[in-house]
């Protein structure tokens, strides 16, 4: 039984992919190319994300210039040998700012996702596992938070607390935990009724042990997928809010804010806007690619739950 299930899951892995709806047309072992395609995009996403993270980590070592060093002799220099991506209106090297900005952008987004997921998993598990009035209260709060369009609520929270990276992270966390809690709750609800949980009960395991040893491990997959997809969306919201000046404050480099300063020099230095935007696209795209691929490897039972 156990074996049959894992076999089925294995087969599910090879048959599904970016072309999930093509399952029906896959009858024989013939179309190997198709089987590999999702993995290829996944590997691409993983590699891109890995490269970006490593670049962010070693940014101070590989950045050719000091990202904060102002050189008014060399402002708005077009991309060339000395400055690969040119310089901005204060003569700062764009490539260096981009690399150091990666630490801020990726670091803040990653941190936000970790906090969001932790809060969501704790509250979602409590709501789903214990049910009753705890569930009722948590889910009413979730419904209310989800009634706000997420970016607008974040905008308002940051607006009231005042601009800055810390408040931006706080605002996005306040908005995003609800979606995660809802997903985790529904996952826990479906796991709770499974046989192995009943078996654990029957041998006298306590609630805490069941949650930690049985419930959480079995919902880990979908949660990781959701967190990966969330990383892309948090990056987008974060760069958007930084773009309008609510995130990282000057003179710290951040990708969204760099696009916004580039706008002021659109006439004379159009290259300024292009590289930070491409950096955002690359980061978001890699998170989406990786998340999509991971989702296709998921147990089909959970696949539709992770939107």
């Amino acid at each position: 039984m156990e074996q049959a299930e894992s076999l089925g899951r294995l087969r599910g892995q090879t048959l599904t992919g970016a072309a999930r709806d093509e399952r029906r047309s896959l009858k024989g072992p013939g179309s190997l190319r198709r089987h590999l395609r999702p993995t290829a995009t996944g590997v691409m996403g993983l590699l891109m994300l890995f490269t970006l993270v490593v670049a962010a980590l070693v940014a101070p070592l590989i950045a050719p210039y000091d990202p904060l060093a102002i050189d008014l002799q060399r402002t708005l220099v077009p991309p060339g040998r000395a400055h690969l991506l040119g310089t901005d209106h204060l003569g700062r090297d764009v490539l260096s700012r981009l690399l150091v900005g990666a630490r801020v952008s990726l670091g803040a987004a990653g941190f936000t996702v970790v906090v969001v997921t932790t809060v969501g998993v704790v509250l979602g598990t409590v709501a789903g596992f214990y049910g009753g009035w705890t569930d009722e209260i948590i889910m009413r709060i979730v419904d209310t938070v989800l009634a706000f369009p997420s970016i607008i609520l974040a905008l308002v929270v940051v607006g009231l607390l005042g601009p800055g990276l810390r408040n931006l992270i706080l605002g996005l966390t306040l908005v995003r935990w609800a979606g995660c809690a809802r997903l985790v709750r529904s996952l826990v609800l479906s796991v709770r009724e499974r046989e192995f949980i009943r078996a654990a009960y029957s041998i006298g395991a306590c609630n805490r042990r069941i949650i930690i040893r049985h419930v959480l491990p079995s919902i880990l997959g979908p949660v990781v997928v959701m967190a990966t997809l969330d990383l892309g969306n948090v990056l987008l919201s974060m760069s958007g809010l930084s773009f309008i000046g609510l995130g990282v404050q000057l003179p710290q480099p951040e990708w969204g804010a760099m696009v916004s300063y580039a706008q002021l020099h659109a006439q004379t230095a159009p290259w300024l806007a292009i590289s930070p935007g491409l950096a955002i696209v690359a980061a978001v795209l890699s998170a989406h690619l990786l998340g999509d691929t991971l989702r296709d490897f998921l147990d089909p039972r959970y696949r539709d739950m992770v939107s």
Partner: peptide, 27 residues
């Protein structure tokens, strides 16, 4: 369209707006 959909979900609209201005308004 598959590639477009992936890109469209990953491109921040404020940057797309800036690029559109650069090309269609400035250039």
């Amino acid at each position: 369209s598959r590639v477009l959909a992936l890109l469209g979900a990953s491109v921040p609209s404020f940057w797309l707006g800036t690029i559109l201005i650069l090309f269609f308004a400035v250039r």
